[in-house]
Amino acid sequence: MPKSLFWTRTDTAGSEHVVLDDRQGLTAQGVALAVDPIPYTCRYQLTVGADWSTSRLEVTAEGAGWSRSVRLERGGDGWRVRTGEEGDLDAALRAAGHPPAGLPGTDDPDRLAEALDVDLGGSPLTNTLPVRRLNLGRAPADQPRTITAAWVLLPGLAVLPAQQVYTSLGPGRVRYASDSFTADLDVDPEGFVVRYPGLAERIDPR
């Protein structure tokens, strides 16, 4: 049966709800909302293979007077990236006192060549992808694993290669690090995030 997961953001007003099936890899449909840096709604569809490497991510983001989309697909010849844009997100950001987001997508998909995972900004779900792919639930503790992820920034949907490090800390605990940022995640037995300090906490049905 499909699963339903819900997180509330702890860094800003926002939330994420996803319906997923993880019996053979992962298929997921989710909606994320946040007010920072400006109010937006993000909808995404994610497809992950049986080996837990990502094959497709489609994302749309929209707010007052603007919308953007990006589609990432990974094949034998690397990543293909398609984008769309309506309205003027950068104007909305400037009006709110924030720097512009720039263009969605990437001008050089080859920069993503080493990425087997995607990282959707602010989404605890996508942390599960390397956790499951690297089998960190059964990995020895304190052995860092370095990956490259295709990092999708919200709300602008720029796509960047990001080097990230995942380390098992024992049952139910995984350390995530990127550049100078580090967070110790609480995960359930299936690798889904329960608590991401400074970002989100999962709300489970009672």
Rank of each mutant, 00 (worst) to 15 (best):
residue 1 M to R: 15
residue 1 M to K: 11
residue 2 P to V: 10
residue 2 P to W: 07
residue 3 K to N: 14
residue 8 T to W: 08
residue 8 T to Y: 11
residue 11 D to H: 08
residue 11 D to T: 07
residue 14 G to F: 04
residue 15 S to C: 10
residue 16 E to S: 05
residue 17 H to W: 08
residue 18 V to W: 01
residue 19 V to P: 09
residue 19 V to S: 15
residue 21 D to M: 10
residue 21 D to A: 13
residue 22 D to E: 13
residue 32 A to F: 06
residue 33 L to E: 11
residue 36 D to A: 12
residue 37 P to I: 04
residue 39 P to L: 06
residue 41 T to A: 12
residue 43 R to K: 11
residue 44 Y to R: 07
residue 49 G to Q: 13
residue 50 A to F: 02
residue 52 W to D: 03
residue 52 W to V: 06
residue 54 T to D: 02
residue 58 E to V: 11
residue 61 A to S: 15
residue 65 G to S: 05
residue 70 V to H: 10
residue 73 E to D: 11
residue 74 R to T: 00
residue 75 G to E: 04
residue 75 G to Q: 08
residue 78 G to M: 05
residue 79 W to G: 05
residue 85 E to I: 04
residue 87 G to D: 01
residue 90 D to L: 00
residue 92 A to V: 03
residue 92 A to T: 00
residue 103 L to S: 13
residue 106 T to F: 03
residue 106 T to N: 08
residue 108 D to I: 00
residue 109 P to R: 00
residue 109 P to T: 00
residue 110 D to H: 12
residue 110 D to A: 15
residue 113 A to P: 09
residue 113 A to G: 09
residue 113 A to C: 11
residue 114 E to Q: 14
residue 115 A to F: 07
residue 116 L to H: 14
residue 118 V to E: 05
residue 121 G to F: 06
residue 122 G to Q: 02
residue 123 S to E: 10
residue 125 L to Q: 12
residue 127 N to F: 12
residue 132 R to D: 10
residue 140 P to L: 03
residue 144 P to H: 01
residue 147 I to E: 05
residue 150 A to M: 05
residue 151 W to E: 06
residue 152 V to G: 10
residue 153 L to R: 15
residue 156 G to N: 05
residue 158 A to Q: 13
residue 159 V to K: 06
residue 163 Q to K: 09
residue 166 Y to L: 09
residue 168 S to R: 09
residue 169 L to W: 10
residue 175 R to G: 04
residue 175 R to P: 06
residue 176 Y to D: 07
residue 177 A to W: 03
residue 178 S to Y: 09
residue 182 T to W: 01
residue 186 D to A: 15
residue 187 V to I: 13
residue 190 E to K: 08
residue 195 R to F: 01
residue 198 G to T: 09
residue 199 L to Q: 14
residue 201 E to Q: 13
residue 205 P to T: 14
residue 205 P to A: 15
